[in-house]
Amino acid sequence: MATLLSRAEKSYIITSLTSKPPLRHDGRGPVDYRLIGLARGDSVAPLANGSAKIRVGGTEVVAAVRLEVEDIDLELDEGRMRCNVTCSPAAYPHLSANQQDDIQKDLTSLLQSTFSPTKSHDSNGDSFTSVMSKSLTILPGRKAWTMYLDAVVLSDAGNVHDVLFLACRAAICDTRVPRTRAVEYAQPSKGSSTRRAGETGGEMDVEEEADIWKTAVQSKRAARAADFELEDTADEGGWLEGRERCPVAVTLNVLPTMHILDATHAEEQAVPLKLVLIYSFATISTQKEGEFMGMRLLGPGQVPMAYLSGLIQEGETYAKQLVSALNVQMEIK
């Protein structure tokens, strides 16, 4: 990565951060976020099932969810999620194409590993991803929605991880799954099968048709369902189950004595040690403790073990604030 800051500039930033009170060049406190702008729905990506654009300072990420019907194996039984992060060439204008690809792959793998369905081993029940992928099932063992979560980093002015996860969370919360019902094939009754179409009137034909193709009302339990059809409802479908449990990331930029949140591009270079913490919360109202979903320690340097657990706890409070702010904006709960 091309060095954009001189040693003097870096030391200036670190010295002012570690002074008392800590000073940041844009006047924020150490744990203040920049203004978070949110746009969602059709104004962002009209062709997607759910989409959102998050802008934090100069960092801008668009995420969109598309649902596509896929044939699934009997043992799989639920929908899958595929994540992909693309970085626009404009996001990293000072990097070569190969370096941009590396960043893309890093972010994709982080997202994919967070969002792939796993069975949790504790007593709390299933993880949010398995709850979510169950709600993507159309016909158990046969057809399910595959969720394509595409995120595009349009520009990066620091703290891209947090913004990426915020955008993905907002897009998933904005997603509506089209309502489906199973269609099953019923054996035509004896009386109707002996009649010929030509002999009967038009009304009888319709009746017969309705007899053969029965719509299984209890769609999910219809064992003999042959196919599915889309319900014609006024809304565009239901929300994804467990969407409120969708995770957020909080990046702590760690200095020996303190940490800062939402670092700008310059601060990220001066404070290279980043701790990305990913949390999921059941609901904010119950005040239940969050689930810790992932952690990445990025950049050179190290954190003492004793210090780490404190950071994880503090990260949880920040994440909780972030989630509740987003929930208010997205009108969840």
Partner: peptide, 8 residues
């Protein structure tokens, strides 16, 4: 800080 353009 959006009012101060970032280096990128």
């Amino acid at each position: 800080s959006a009012s101060n353009p970032h280096p990128n």
